[in-house]
Design a protein around this nucleic acid. Sequence first.
DNA 1: CGGATCGTTGACCTGCGTCAACAGAAGTGG
DNA 2: CCACTTCTGTTGACGCAGGTCAACGATCCG
Lengths: 222, 222
Amino acid sequence: MIGEGDREALEAAASRTVKFAARQVVVREGEALSQCTLLLKGFVHRFKDTEDGRRQILAIHIPGDFVDLHSYPLKHLEHSVAATTEVEVAIFPHSAVRELTARSTALTELLWRATLIDAAINREWLVSIGARSAEARLAHLFCELQARLERIGQGDRNGFDLPLTQIDLADATGLTPVHTNRMLRRLRVRGLVEFRERHVFIHDLDELRHVADFDPGYLFLE
Amino acid sequence: MIGEGDREALEAAASRTVKFAARQVVVREGEALSQCTLLLKGFVHRFKDTEDGRRQILAIHIPGDFVDLHSYPLKHLEHSVAATTEVEVAIFPHSAVRELTARSTALTELLWRATLIDAAINREWLVSIGARSAEARLAHLFCELQARLERIGQGDRNGFDLPLTQIDLADATGLTPVHTNRMLRRLRVRGLVEFRERHVFIHDLDELRHVADFDPGYLFLE
DNA sequence: CGGATCGTTGACCTGCGTCAACAGAAGTGG
DNA sequence: CCACTTCTGTTGACGCAGGTCAACGATCCG
């Protein structure tokens, strides 16, 4: 989501790096934050729990993503953040972000832009959950992750590692785990994609994208 | 979403005001933009159409909202924008926004923040559509609009004008118009809320919020 | 006055949820 | 190291929330 050169400049401004164990909750909903988190290694997801015990995953982050950059202008988060896998992150105190943005409007726009791409992904998920079939939702999620991961060199058009459970996929797509399982089977039987042992094997990316009604424009990859 | 004082300062930077007729499409998906739009009067909504003809409404904007401020860092939009009612908007060329942000980092953060509150609303809609029942989704939407409209003096805890059709509500909540109609009836029979003649009559806001699992924190109204 | 658009309702259908069972993998404590 | 739980994935049977189809007023508008 952020270019390599800028990323290194930013990493220099990081105060330190921190590791979290898999499945650890990093930020709890409503918490006030005084720092931002850049994901260096591993996966992180953001989510919200409803009163009746359902969990909605709001975003899945991959290395290079700012996980909670929006906490800088907003001061606190209205959702939780958890480590999906074991992760390593770089910490940016809000004060450091303030100094960076005071010095360069170009960098400010870069950071702003990163949060907006995040929002664009949120909107596409809205379309998926609100208007696409269960099968298409899953296909769309795979397409999105394929495009984003290929960009950072963690996958190609034949597949990528995806350290999620079927329960996670269900929580991300607004489905039940049981139905998720059945739709994965259908996608597999149709020869489009196979999700097995934390890896997505893509057998026909073009057809998968067609089934998913996927257009990568919303990712603003260039 | 933006304070009165800042709003007037911004209005001074607007190049001009423009009116649109109800139901007119203002920006089409994918269009490159060289200006931003501040909504002064009326309602605007943003949406995306899927290949198979379904429409997902992504956001409903009320006076005081920046409708497409994210077009400034992103340069083009990945969704469409339409006037819900007859509207009046103030136009800000991107060049004017650039000058404003170059001059004041505080203002930049204010604008950035506005786009992030927008994103927070997107996320709450994700939770609604992904994890709440049809009835709760509608109740939640009413609660959100109540809170936002009350803040700008266009409603109170007893109700507000809402210039949407049931079809619009359906497109916003990921339901069909028929089911939307039935759930509206249920909410009415339960004595919670009544939507009639483009007006929402709230009969029991506390209970409505409870049914909706509504917590206004995500709106950052303070 | 004719044609859209919208709201409403009934009858029926289906995609997805629920419940339940079980096997395999992966922790966990002794 | 092994028993023991816990977490996953998988499948079947069944139920229901919400979708689909259809009909018909009401309203608006040219």
